[in-house]
């Protein structure tokens, strides 16, 4: 249920910041994410500030 809440928040975010062009990118990423999520997570190594 709370995952739906996140999608709703994302919709509101797009509306508020008028960044509609982000929508297709994020949708594709989320679909890809379903595949990627099973792999190990990793942030960039400590040689870079955690920008991401």
């Amino acid at each position: 249920m709370s995952r739906l809440e996140v999608l709703k928040e994302f919709w509101n975010f797009l509306k508020e910041r008028k960044k509609w062009w982000l929508a297709p990118i994020v949708i594709v990423l989320l679909l890809l994410g379903a595949l990627i999520a099973v792999t190990e997570t990793s942030a960039l190594a400590p040689f870079i500030y955690t920008l991401f």
């Binding site: 809440e5 999520a37 990793s42 991401f52």
Partner: peptide, 23 residues
Amino acid sequence: FSFLRAMPVWIKEKIWMSHLIRK
């Protein structure tokens, strides 16, 4: 390259913050 390395953790965790906090 950096983007692809960062994405799994974003898609898996960071973007679902409300869900994560509630859970």
